[in-house]
Design a protein around this nucleic acid. Structure first.
Lengths: 226, 226
DNA sequence: GGATATTTACTAGTATGCAAGTATGGTATA
DNA sequence: TATACCATACTTGCATACTAGTAAATATCC
């Protein structure tokens, strides 16, 4: 954790500290298992323990930190079970959403999706894995919006936080080209207005994580709860 | 809010206060829109403001309260959009789960589900709507467990909190007999090991809320965000 | 030298005081 | 009577002091 946050003292500081730490955790800057201290962070950013403490409580509620009384506060390691649950939920929801979109998709939407995929290809050509992660999220969000269910996607975002940490930390471990090809298959299903085809492509796509997960948990066991 | 919590002073008080308030909110004892005060609750249960304040922060993270700086803390009114999102997610997930169960269901599971439904019928015969809400949750959890996905159900529990408040507050507004009949249809699909049949029954069941919601939001507008 | 107390430095949990913003009700004024 | 103003009593946000518990290094005893 190299940077300091820019605290705006005309606003409440606790939420700002929370957001700052949350970002750092999701990006993997604060790795699973890392130790935090209310006092140390408070001194670093020039506030009292109190707002930092409240930020820790919020992080705990997010499932991103764990306060061990009288011992310390730690960045939570990733629970494989939680990742698998989130993946299952995501597959179920996005499968339903993509069926809805298949009925509604018009040329304008299809063109925008094609354009998104082109940008993704550009990022992978530049070897920029982090950008791809961001674009990937945007692609899926766009589908949720097209289904008129952006709110549902926002809920998924919360659940996906464990998955996202994993993706940022191990972005290079994924076969990104394959993922982009799967995006194209999904859009192809939409183009044909074939809900079953689009759904099958979506499920294949979201099950990809199941192939990668064992390798990741073998090579980076320190990220996970044993 | 009539009762006092039993605070165990050998443990941290903040989490205890949080759980106590959370229950009161979900049961509808603290109704949407109600005003809370750190000081008042602290005095009532004989602790300082600090742990109460931390409980409020946790409630905010749960989406159950809203702290308006320098104004007060209020029990959040229910967002219709949030309920609809939660319902959609629930339908998607439970549909996938019930398909899994249809493949695995054995006589022992079917017998236990039949027994659950019998208990539900008993509750409705006794006119005990609150008990039915509890049994209903147990029924759906049992299905998730049978699919080997109890963790996923736990995640849904968190999302459903807005829905649950509604159910407790307006338990009598629902046609409970109809709901029990739908439970039977779901189990019938399992008995025939027919995933499509079971899924269709589940979706019908979970879409029932869509029929009741307009009536509820008309007759109890004070529960909802405008 | 090894095992066992003890000190010491740290941790988070709680209580309390103060600051700053908001709502309310009363009062003076037109 | 209606309106503007102001005093007051609240609210939460933050800082600080103190408590109690943990863990690790150190001293002490055998």
């Amino acid at each position: 954790m190299t940077m300091q946050p820019n605290i705006d003292f005309t606003l409440s500081t606790a939420p700002q500290v929370h957001e700052w730490l949350r970002d750092a955790i999701l990006r993997g800057e604060l790795p699973p298992g890392a130790r935090l201290s209310e006092t140390e962070i408070a001194n670093r950013i020039g506030v009292s323990r109190q707002p930092v403490r409240e930020a820790f409580i919020r992080l705990t509620a997010d499932g991103l930190a764990e306060v061990r009384p009288q011992r310390g506060t730690y960045i939570r390691r990733i629970s494989l079970a939680a990742v698998l649950s989130a993946r299952l939920i995501r597959e179920a929801v996005e499968s339903d959403l993509i069926r809805m979109v298949a009925d509604l998709a018009d040329d304008r939407l299809l063109a925008r999706l094609d354009q998104e995929i082109a940008q993704q290809a550009q990022a992978v050509a530049a070897g920029d894995a982090e950008t791809f992660v961001r674009l990937d999220d945007r692609f899926h969000r766009m589908l949720a919006v097209a289904a008129g269910q952006e709110a549902a996607w926002d809920v998924l975002e919360g659940l996906k936080s464990q998955m996202n940490r994993l993706r940022y930390i191990t972005a290079r471990a994924f076969d990104i080209k394959k993922l982009i090809g799967q995006h194209s298959e999904i859009v192809e299903g939409l183009r044909q207005h074939d809900p079953a085809l689009a759904e099958a492509a979506m499920r294949r796509h979201l099950r990809e994580l199941l192939n990668d997960l064992p390798g990741i948990s073998d090579s980076r066991p320190e990220l996970f709860i044993p």
